[in-house]
Write a protein that binds this DNA or RNA. Structure first.
Lengths: 194, 194
DNA sequence: AGCGTCGATGACAGTCACTGACATCGACAG
DNA sequence: CTGTCGATGTCAGTGACTGTCATCGACGCT
């Protein structure tokens, strides 16, 4: 495998998160990350496309999970209910990673470049979910709107899960947020949330 | 004012869009943009924070417009209806800039860094609109969800306005998208869009 | 044991985005 | 005519990222 120790990729990700937390993202150089991982800067860029990507290694797996949740929803499910199934699957991905997710999210919100990268990952997720809905026969623009609405639910639910001291389950918070979204978008309603 | 010709900022923005269209964003250096504008690279960075920002000069004004639309909505308006008023105001900003918006959007979608920047501008807009809703007395998470839902409508409506050859008004497309969103999120509905 | 292959890593030079420090120009006030 | 001041030019430097080539080390084959 590698030239020396195995798991070079994981070592780089671990070193990066540590350093970003210790001195901040901007004050950390790629050379420092590589050195802490026992590698060189050039090798870092062979594993990760850039300095930001090292924090988003799991985004591909998360996306696959969410998509499979949508695909696996009962055929009778309405678009937004299929999205809910996708969010449920995604919630499982984070379930046992709460502390890690908190640390990582604290680093991300502290830096604009990292926030940009997170947003494009969420946009990619949204596009993949819209694709899955289309695969279920949902037409445009319904598919895109349902996917974007689902992402809104995800963002709100996830943020609460990270922020709260309570021990509410991520999937619980997702369901609550979904219910609140449906309330907000309901027709002729008496101003919810006041 | 300036050392030579006036409107340095506008000249830089114009030169940048031209070059990004001619050779693509990545193949254009900041030095080339500055040279075409009759300035130096250093001066470019005095007007724009980075190579991406030059394409997003109007985002602040757009955001102010949208927020004022929400603030100015009738007090009796539900959160999502206030958002619709904000989108209506934002639509006016683009009304006479359709061709420019098309060219600019074509450049943005062709490059990942520019897409990231666009997403964070939209996120900033969403946050500002949520703030405006809170100013109207809307509680969290209703405000954030309504703002995000409104952004979903904006994205879908704007993309259609850019893509279609037809002469539909942006605000018309926004209203249609809003209606479709409400249909998707309606309870117990018979699978819209199929 | 000896040998060749091959993927992962190191070494090195180079480009370009971006920044700080300082000099300079040009308009304007007095 | 002169001092001020904002905008620009100049220059040196850092760090992210890339292309290229050499090298190492595991593995299979003989």
């Amino acid at each position: 495998m590698g030239r020396w120790e195995p798991n070079a990729r994981e070592r780089l990700a671990k070193a990066a998160l540590e350093l970003y937390r210790e001195r901040g993202y901007e004050q950390t150089t790629v050379a420092e990350i590589a050195k802490r991982a026992g590698l060189t800067e050039r090798t870092f860029f062979r594993h990760y496309a850039d300095k930001r990507e090292v924090l988003f290694d799991g985004s591909g797996a998360l996306q696959e999970l969410a998509v499979s949740g949508v695909v696996g929803a009962p055929e009778s499910a309405a678009p937004l209910d299929a999205m809910a199934a996708g969010l449920e699957a995604a919630s499982g991905w984070f379930a046992d990673r709460r502390e890690h997710a908190r640390q990582r999210q604290a680093v991300i919100v502290a830096n604009a470049e990292l926030r940009e990268r997170e947003l494009i990952k969420l946009a990619s997720l949204s596009a993949a979910l819209a694709d899955a809905l289309r695969g279920r026969g949902v037409a445009e623009p319904t598919a895109s709107l349902a996917a974007e609405a689902g992402m809104a639910v995800f963002k709100v639910g996830f943020q609460r899960w990270i922020a709260e001291a309570e021990e509410a389950t991520l999937s619980q918070l997702m369901r609550e947020s979904m219910a609140e979204l449906k309330a907000v978008t309901a027709h002729g309603q008496a101003r919810p949330g006041r």
